[in-house]
Write a protein that binds this DNA or RNA. Structure first.
Length: 828
RNA sequence: GCAAGGGUAGCGAAGUGGUCAAACGCGCGGGACUCAAGAUCCCGUCUCUCAGUGAGUUCACAGGUUCGAAUCCUGUCCCUUGCACCA
């Protein structure tokens, strides 16, 4: 028997990849005639180990979408770039004794090659690399704009310090409180002057804007809301030694229940509160806390509440009661003023603290099942022990008490946020240099715009602390103001700075004069579909919203949000069930799979397993299913001749076009593929189909399997690129549910025939050789010509008769049993 | 602890009030082809019944709403992820 011709996929792939590149098929420009559509995947950090199937999945998801939109006559911007600055590159470079620059550039080259081999339809003319001074120049430019406006500033802050490395570490480098290089070394917290970006200025807009992000997964939106953490409450002024201190509470209704105050142990002005005779006590407590802060994070979490009396008293503004002020380890220093009013009866934390130090517990709200002896009651109820507010409902009392305080100018309604300012200082080499100069006379000044970029010096020593501090001649500079001797800032920026605006640079990647052309950004932005992992929910996905808003306020953008549509793709797991990663050793390389099955098979398989937002598992067996399908399609088109489609087929294909279009648009690729496979099953069974219908099938398949579809497109005589063809439009008039129903009746008949064959074999122990089907005269047309299919699918010769056919062969008079939609069957 | 998302046939995965014993793929069983294997094609794959159109028990568990529930409600258990003393 003739073996089907083995297909050389790699020849086909190379051929079309070359064609696409040569003819610049995926390059785009601003166009007035076409509507734009911006598809973007989060750009990768170009790791030296290259791409594996997990990456391939991510990019394939976006590529399918971009191809789909492109074929739907949209002007699709689909770019790719590399997040090439950052700690991993620096460390990998040190490890391999290479300079981060050459290490990174090699990695990028490799990435690009691999991505091209995946058949991704990027506009390669727009590639950006963040380590390119022409890129990070604009990081610095933005920084200076923020600096001018007070949004970039210096502040003392606690940072992670490894005593063995003798350097500051990024948060990512701290694992369970230990240095990642020295697993036995605890990271210390050091207070250092650091650069911050004042993202908190945008906290409210970032929070409220979440409601407008209709195309974002709820999960991400909730995470951001929790992270930004907006609370509505009341700011109350408590007097201490004639000075008024604001404290924040969401429960002013419990104000009469305040029995003590607690100030954070990290409060910068803590010592103001500590009286002479308590100094020793507090000092002892602080010392204890300090050693604790060096314990692993887990231990800290398990710690109970501790504190010490400061010796000071505050005046409760509602009843002038004198209440003691304690210092405590459980109060967050930079939230709500760093001091809390403690209501042990109605707050569990205060309750525990009060129990431990035997402080009074005063009940002021009577709910349904208070049991103040055991735990705090945080619910609603009616006020008691609260003067003129007694018997008022607690919800009402929130307003009433706030109003009362407002009258006395001792309180006001306010909101608080959990979001903290963004610490961007990194004592590392491979990042964007902060464009700041220190002069002993003039202080801190920003580098002049015309002097940007401040380029990274290439000659530095790696291995000990911040390499930039070893670039003596680089550090030495002239003061921007007075021209006198000055020194450069040696901190670099967090790599997330680079990714906070890269999507804008794609709009105008080569611009040397400005960060991007406003008109171009106006045309392309916002991103119509952003695709990336959920792990960035509270980092990149907040930062890029912040930058967008800042650049808008600079007058560079008209939009408020970078994107209203975000898709979180799932992760690929290896065959061992764990997330695919090099360190785990379970990676599958696209090159290898490509060789064996062709990359289109891999692309198809990756998105056919499950909805792309779900985690999936690679399986060598599973890919066979996709491989079979691809081969069938190739073989079909290699020998197909076209004619006229049957009515039934026209119905089928138009229904498929309709469904597949909406499935792909909704990222339900897995369902789209099933429908394409079913359609192809029918195509194979049809005697002939119209060329136009065959084209439609290929076009739909092309978004998943672009290489072989280009090949087949040309095989059937086309000269254009299928990648640029128009997506088929369903002709709804041709969809005929009746024909579909008739198809089901035939299916049922086949099922029945097979069932009887099985029964005869089992019960009567004899083989069936042929069969006869008896149908009602008015249904004859449904079964016309079906004898072949039924024969094929039951493996016996089938003849179909009308019940009223006088010449029919019917020894057991089965035709008597016939009902509408249920033909009679006789087998022998 | 709080929040979000889940638990569907051997496995993966669709389905979110009737057309559901539940698409599709993998696996498995049978058959055709072949000297044979592979590939390919066809059939089957909850249980029972049977020369067919039938019955029964299912969609984590327990209740409930409904003429009708995998799908809605309540409670419980389990999983995954995120946040974690934010007053």
């Amino acid at each position: 028997m003739a073996r089907e011709k083995k297909i050389n996929f790699s020849v086909i792939e190379k051929k079309w990849q070359r064609e696409w590149e040569k003819k610049k098929v995926f390059q785009v420009n601003e166009s007035r005639s076409k509507k734009k559509f911006y598809v973007l995947e989060m750009y990768p950090y170009p790791s030296g180990s290259g791409l594996h199937m997990g990456h391939a999945l991510n990019y394939t998801i976006g590529d399918i979408y971009a191809r789909f939109k492109r074929m739907n006559d949209l002007n699709v911007l689909y770019p790719m770039g590399y997040d090439s600055l950052g700690l991993p590159a620096e460390n990998a470079a040190i490890k391999t004794h290479m300079h981060p620059k050459s290490y990174t550039e090699k990695a990028i080259k490799n990435f690009i090659r691999q991505q091209k081999e995946l058949g991704l339809s990027y506009d390669w003319s727009r590639v950006i690399e963040t380590h390119d001074p022409n890129y990070y120049k604009w990081d610095q430019w933005i920084f200076l704009k923020m600096f001018e406006r007070g949004l970039a500033f210096r502040k003392k802050a606690p940072v992670n310090w490894c005593p063995k490395c003798n350097t500051v570490l990024a948060n990512e480098q701290v694992h369970n409180g230990m240095c990642w290089r020295h697993k036995d070394t605890e990271v210390e917290i050091k207070q250092l002057e650091q650069w911050f970006l004042k993202i908190t200025d945008y906290a409210d807009e970032l929070y409220e804007g979440i409601n407008k992000l209709n195309g974002w997964p709820d999960r991400i939106k909730t995470m951001q809301k929790n992270w930004i953490g907006k609370s509505y409450g009341t700011e109350i002024l408590f007097e201490v030694d004639g000075e008024k201190w604001p404290i924040f509470t969401t429960r002013p209704d419990t104000l009469f229940g305040v029995t003590f105050m607690v100030i954070s142990a990290q409060h910068p002005e803590l010592m103001k509160f500590v009286t002479k005779d308590q100094k020793k006590n507090v000092g002892k407590f602080l010392k204890k806390i300090k050693t604790v802060s060096q314990k692993s994070i887990k231990e800290v979490e398990e710690l109970d509440k501790q504190g010490a009396f400061t010796g000071s008293y505050a005046i409760n503004p509602i009843n002038n009661e004198k209440i003691p002020i304690w210092v405590g380890n459980f109060v967050v220093a930079d939230y709500g003023g760093g001091i809390v009013m403690a209501v042990p009866a109605h707050d569990q934390r205060d309750f525990e603290f009060a129990k431990k130090y035997k402080l009074p517990i005063k009940e002021v709200i009577r709910g349904k099942n208070n049991n103040i002896k055991q735990r705090a009651y945080a619910g609603e109820g009616n006020l008691i022990n609260s003067g003129k507010f007694n018997s008022m409902n607690s919800k009402k009392a929130i307003n009433a008490i706030t109003k009362e305080l407002q009258k006395k100018k001792l309180g006001k309604i306010t909101t608080e946020f959990k979001l903290k300012d963004w610490l961007i200082s990194r004592q590392r080499y491979w990042g964007t240099p902060i464009p700041i100069v220190y002069c002993d006379k003039c202080g801190i000044t920003g580098v002049k715009e015309k002097d940007l970029p401040v380029k990274l010096p290439e000659k530095v020593k790696f291995g000990k602390g911040n390499p930039l501090t070893t670039a003596k001649s680089w550090i030495k500079t002239k003061c921007v103001k007075c021209g006198g001797p000055a020194r450069r800032e040696t901190d670099t920026m967090d790599t997330f700075v680079n990714s906070s605006w890269y999507f804008l640079r794609y709009c105008d990647p080569q611009n040397k004069k400005v960060i991007f052309d406003k008109k171009k950004a106006d045309y392309w932005m916002p991103i119509d579909q952003y695709i990336g992992g959920a792990e960035h929910a509270c980092m990149h996905l907040i930062y890029f919203r912040f930058y967008t808003k800042f650049l808008r306020d600079l007058g560079l953008l008209k939009i408020d949000e970078p994107t209203y549509n975000l898709f979180n793709q799932g992760m690929l797991h290896g065959e061992d069930g764990f997330v695919m990663s090099k360190s785990r050793g379970n990676v599958v390389l696209p090159e290898k799979v490509s060789k064996k099955y062709g990359i289109d098979t891999a692309r198809l398989f990756l998105v056919s397993l499950a909805n792309p937002d779900k985690d999936i598992q690679w399986s060598e067996k599973g890919i066979q299913g996709s491989f079979r399908f691809i081969n069938k399609v190739m073989n079909y088109f290699n020998k197909s001749k076209f004619g006229k489609s049957s009515k039934k087929f026209e119905s089928k294909i138009n229904k498929t076009i309709k469904d597949v279009s909406s499935d792909v648009d909704g990222f339900r690729y897995n369902l789209a593929i099933i429908k394409l496979k079913k359609l192809f099953d029918v195509i194979e069974k049809e005697e002939k189909i119209a060329e136009k219908d065959a084209e439609s099938f290929l076009k739909m398949l092309a978004v998943f399997c672009p290489h072989i579809c280009e090949e087949l497109w040309h095989k059937i005589g086309k000269k254009s690129f299928i990648s640029l063809e128009k997506w088929p439009v369903a002709d709804l008039k041709k969809i005929d549910e009746k024909l579909e129903a008739q198809e089901k009746v035939v299916e049922k008949l086949i099922e029945d025939v097979n069932n009887i064959i099985k029964l005869v074999k089992e019960k009567q122990k004899k083989a069936v050789k042929r069969g006869f089907v008896y149908v009602l005269p008015n249904e004859k047309q449904i079964y016309a010509g079906k004898d072949d299919i039924i024969s094929k699918r039951s493996n016996i010769k089938i003849e179909i008769f009308a019940v009223n056919d006088k010449n029919k062969y019917d020894p057991e008079n089965k035709s008597k049993k016939v009902k509408p939609g249920r033909p009679g069957i006789y087998l022998e």
